[in-house]
């Protein structure tokens, strides 16, 4: 096969994968929209919330939300709004959902990125060290730590960190999201450590297993026997181990973004996790819809990115795709 047509096949693969992501998100949006009608009770009453109701008010809500239209036309009307960034108004605060989310998304995204960066910068290198020194005291100590990390509940880790670094040592703030910039970062350190702790332990174990598996391969023995410098052998091993590790990192990012609730509540952060928790309690359906769809979109796009990196990183997968 010529390389031009192989490149064409890869482009086709990317387009197909993109289309699949769009279809997936449409399906999710459909389910998310159905939430309104699946929630027990009259949709109009749900949308009204705890405000006093009268037949006139309910009728005006029906008119405002087109609740008497056929289901699908309601869906497409809603979807059209969503595509223009309009998720409707929050029932609780009566402000546009988009406005409500704007600040909070930033906090959660910053938290997730910070935790992700910590995971990548700490757990991956430690996993490599543990694999290279498998069986040593360092390896065993870290592996025990990882078991604790995987097992420890987030809220417990958060409270301990709060107590030790926030209260006893008074090194970090214990409350809120800060005033932006460096102060924001300052406020997010402890929550991010909390979030990264369990996930990092998992990534550490996966990295260790991946590198250890590669170190056992014949090509490593062959490289050593040919007298390649240790640095070159290491590069070769890491390039191979990168493939399984990148997959796990992709899953981790999706998880971090969608899994901030406990941490946000523990540290009183104004992110979308805590907003989701209170909105569910309050049956604030438009907000729940927006957050759910947003989280799903982040996870789907991460999965897409992982797939594309995978194609770039593994020539065998590339060849299969090109076929």
């Amino acid at each position: 096969m010529s390389s031009a047509s192989a490149r064409g096949s890869v482009v086709r693969f990317v387009l197909v994968r993109l289309a699949a992501t769009v279809v997936l998100l449409l399906a999710v949006s459909f389910v998310v929209f159905s939430l309104l009608h699946l929630t027990p009770g009259d949709p109009a009453r749900n949308l009204l919330g705890p405000k006093p109701s009268s037949p006139e008010i309910l009728a005006s809500i029906r008119a405002q939300y087109h609740l008497d239209d056929p289901f699908f036309s309601q869906y497409f009307r809603w979807l059209g709004g969503v595509l223009h960034g309009d998720f409707g108004r929050s029932i609780r605060s009566d402000t546009p959902v988009t406005e409500l989310l704007a600040d909070r998304v930033v906090v959660t995204a910053q938290l997730a990125f910070l935790a992700f960066a910590m995971t990548v910068l700490v757990a991956v290198p430690l996993g490599i060290v543990a694999a290279v020194r498998a069986g040593s005291t360092i390896d065993r100590t870290m592996s025990v730590g990882a078991i604790i990390g995987v097992g420890a509940p987030t809220y417990a880790v958060g409270l301990i960190l709060l107590y030790v670094f926030g209260v006893s040592l008074d090194l970090f703030p214990v409350y809120g999201s800060g005033d932006g910039g460096l102060d924001r970062l300052w406020h997010l350190v402890l929550p991010a450590v909390t979030l990264a702790f369990g996930v990092g332990a998992l990534v550490f174990k996966l990295t260790r297993t991946a590198v250890l598996g590669e170190l056992d391969q014949d090509y490593v023995a062959f490289a050593v026997s040919r007298g390649l410098e240790p640095r070159r052998v290491r590069t070769m091993v890491l390039r191979n181990a990168f493939i399984p590790v990148i997959t796990s990192l992709g899953l981790v990012f999706g998880f971090l973004f969608g899994g901030t609730i406990l941490v946000e509540v523990t540290f009183a952060l104004q992110g979308i996790g805590s907003l989701l928790a209170s909105s569910v309690t309050f049956k604030d359906i438009p907000v729940v819809q927006a957050i759910t769809l947003l989280t799903a979109a982040v996870i789907a796009l991460t999965a897409l990115a992982v797939d594309l990196i995978y194609v770039g990183a593994d020539p065998r997968v590339r060849a299969r795709v090109a076929r």
Binding site: Q217, D218, Y219, A221, F222, V224, R226, G227, M236, R316
Partner: peptide, 24 residues
Amino acid sequence: LAGLRGQRISLLLQNPFTSLSPVH
């Protein structure tokens, strides 16, 4: 053996399907 390995003694392994790095 570091000084001999490769430069003076080299080893060819059994399985050509595993003795080369798959991604290089």
